[in-house]
Design a protein around this nucleic acid. Sequence first.
DNA 1: CCAACCGGGGTCTGCCATAGTA
DNA 2: TACTATGGCAGACCCCGGTTGG
Length: 376
Amino acid sequence: MAARMVAQVMQMYLWRTRFPDLPNYFPSALGFCTSSHNDSTEIIQKPENSALLNNLTVLGVDIKMARRRQPAVLRKMVTNEEGVAEFLRSKGANCTTIASIISRYPRAITRSHWHLEEKWQLWRSIFKTDSEVISVIERSPESYFRSSDNGNLEKNINFLCSLGLSSKDLHRILTTAPRTFSNSLELNKQMVKLLHDLGIRLGDGNPDAFVKRIITKNAYILIRSTKRIKTNVDFFTEALKLSNSELIKLLQGHGAEVLDLSSDYMKRNFKNISDQLQLLGCTAEEVKKFFLDYPPAFYASFEKLSNKIDCLLESEINIKQLLKKPRILEFSANNLKNRIEELERVGYDFKKHGVTILDSSRRRFEAKLEKLNEEG
DNA sequence: CCAACCGGGGTCTGCCATAGTA
DNA sequence: TACTATGGCAGACCCCGGTTGG
C-alpha cells in the first residue's frame, strides 16, 4: 500500500517536472484567435469560462488539479456543477468530498441531473445504501463518472447476472473494481469469452462454472486486458510445465488471484524467487511444487519474501520444512519474527516439531504459546 | 482434544494514449 | 479539429477460523 502511494507520488512528481512552466491557462482578450503556424511558441486556445471557475472555487474545487486533469472542461460554456454538487449532497456527500470528487474528475460536472438520477438507480440495484455508493465515488470518481452511457451500464449488470454471479458477488465487484461496470459490454464479453474458451481448451467439464469461479475468486479480472490474462496463463503453463489438469487446479484456486498481475512483474518475481530457492538447494521439481502450493509467491515482492525466508533460516528452520508449509509465508515478516522469538524463549524445537505452529491465527497461536509456557 | 487442511475475507486508482465523434 | 469516451497500464498481502481426521 505504502509502496503504491510512493509510486503515485513519484508519477505526479515526474509529470510536474516535465512541464515545470506550463502556463495555467491563456486568458484571451482576443477571444477565438487563430494560431499562427510560423510561430509555434504562441499557442492560442479557447479561453476558460471564468464564471465556471468562480462556481468551482466556491465549491472548493482544486482548480489547478482540475485543469491538469481535464483542461477542456474548464472551457465549456454549459456545465452542471451546481446540479451535480446538489445531487451528491442530497445523497449524503459532504462539501469536502464533493470538491475532491470534482477536482479529481472534472468531467463529472457535464452530467445532467436526469443522467445522474438514472445511474444512481442502477448502482442502487446492487448497493443497499446511498452511503455505500458515495464511498465508492469518493474513492474513485472516475469509475463512476467516466461513462455517459447508462444503457451500457444496465447491459453490463444484466450480463454479469447472466453469468450466474450472486448479488453478493456483484456487490464485491462493484465495490472493489468499479471500473468493471463502466467497461463497454463488449470488453467484458471478450474477457468472459477468453476465460470460457480457456476452460474448454483445458477440457474442463463445465466451462461456465470455470469462468464464474475465476471471476468470484478475483474481482479484478474484468478490469484487466485480455492480453495480460492470456500472457499470464501462458506463462504459468510454460514456467511450471503444467498439464491441463494442473493448470485448471491452479486457476480455480489461488492462481485466480494472481492471474491479473502485470506480466513482467510476475516473470521477474518468478525468476528471482526460483533462483533463490535453487540456490538454497531446492530441485526444479520442488520449486514447481512450491509455486503450485503457494501461488501468492508470484505476487509477493521478492524483497519481502526473501526477507522472510532469511528470517526462518536464521532460526535454524530448514528450507525443506518451509517447502512443506509454504503458507507460513503469508504472515508478515514482523509477525513471523515475533512468533519465532517467543517460541525460542520457551525453548521450542523447530527441528523436532516443524514449523506448522507458525501457520495459525493470532488467537490459536497465543493459546498454544500459553500452553507451552505452562509446560516449561 | 488437537493438529492439519483448506477456503474465505478485506481490498484497488489515476494516469496516458487514441479511436471515434460532433 | 477539439473533445469525449474508453482501453490499458503499473503497483504488488495478511490474516482468520470452520471442518476433518486421527
